[in-house]
């Protein structure tokens, strides 16, 4: 399959990329890892007139903690999220997620920024970022702005990013000890999109009472879903079997899946309940065990 023709540029700096974006048409696209965009172009579901390849912009590739946030440069590859010791130790929900995205060869190319910007409701990273209460840094020649996860994911394949903007960083708050997270994905086979997925991040105080809960749902709606009622139900409570079950049930209520090749809608709703319950238990273990 051969994509439609396009113009190609590979700027080495962000400011050159901004200039290119501003001077090219509204159907120009940013090329990061290309593991979603290139298939879209090969199937001619998309025919951008110009690709602005940001792979040579070194300043977008980093992974570090600074000023209260884990900062993930937009060009950070999935393989790096999966294998980083910092991530495995302090943000295991992210390594859980990365290790379930497509397959290892695709993860060598696929980027964190591309995964969230593509805003496929079946992509795994958005659910995790919603659970983590992440923020997204959008930059243009006019400056930068920070977008909250709940405002970033607008609709299917649609984010709050403007045409002139480039997502440069994903920021995850550094939570205090007593925080734990997990991502669970149900998939038919390795490399497939999720039938359903759930990301959970909880913080507990000294006596085990939940002070914050974040729950993001994958592939069960037109966009990633934040299970707000389930989150609210957990705060102020200990994570007992009863509280976990009630939250899982509320998360399932928040999902709006459709029936497709991966299963009927009611099955997916049931799976959200099961996955939420299991993810909460794993997150709880990790919170108590000390690793976030």
């Amino acid at each position: 399959m051969i994509p439609a023709p396009f113009e190609y540029s590979s700027p080495k700096t962000l400011s050159d990329a901004f200039t290119l974006l501003e001077t090219s048409g509204p159907d120009s696209k940013i090329l990061a890892g290309g593991q979603s965009l290139i298939p879209v172009m090969k199937l001619r579901l998309g025919q951008p007139s110009r690709l602005i390849d940001i792979n040579n912009i070194q300043e977008l590739s980093y992974l570090r903690e600074a000023d209260g946030y884990l900062r993930i440069g937009a060009l950070t590859r999935m393989v790096d999220l999966e294998s980083s010791d910092l991530i495995k130790k302090k943000y295991p929900i992210i390594s859980d997620t990365a290790s379930h995205i497509a397959d290892p060869t695709v993860r060598n190319m696929g980027t964190a920024g591309g995964n969230v910007s593509h805003a496929d409701p079946a992509n795994d990273l958005p659910g995790t970022m919603v659970a983590l209460g992440a923020e997204f840094v959008a930059a243009s020649s006019k400056g930068t702005r920070v977008i909250k996860a709940k405002d970033f994911f607008v609709d299917t394949f649609t984010t709050d990013l403007k045409h002139e903007e480039i997502l440069t960083e994903i920021r995850v708050p550094m939570y205090a000890p007593g925080t734990g997270g997990a991502y669970l994905k149900l998939e038919k086979r390795v490399g497939d999109f999720a039938i359903a997925g759930v990301g959970v991040q909880i913080s507990l105080d000294n006596d085990g009472t939940c002070t914050r809960a974040g729950i993001g749902l994958t592939a069960v709606g037109p966009s990633v879903i934040e299970a707000v009622e389930a989150e609210k139900a957990l705060v102020g409570k200990k994570l007992t079997e009863e509280a976990t079950r009630a939250a899982a049930s509320l998360a399932s209520d928040a999902s709006t899946p459709t029936s497709d090749l991966r299963g009927p809608a009611d099955y997916k709703k049931e799976m959200i309940k099961v996955l939420t319950s299991r993810a909460l238990k794993r997150a709880h273990q990790r919170a108590v065990g000390g690793s976030a």
């Binding site: 190609y8 590979s10 290139i38 060869t105 695709v106 190319m109």
Partner: peptide
């Protein structure tokens, strides 16, 4: 040195 799927990368890259 990294394994990639060459059907999902442009030559110019």
């Amino acid at each position: 040195g990294k394994a990639v799927k060459s059907c999902t990368m442009f030559t110019v890259q």
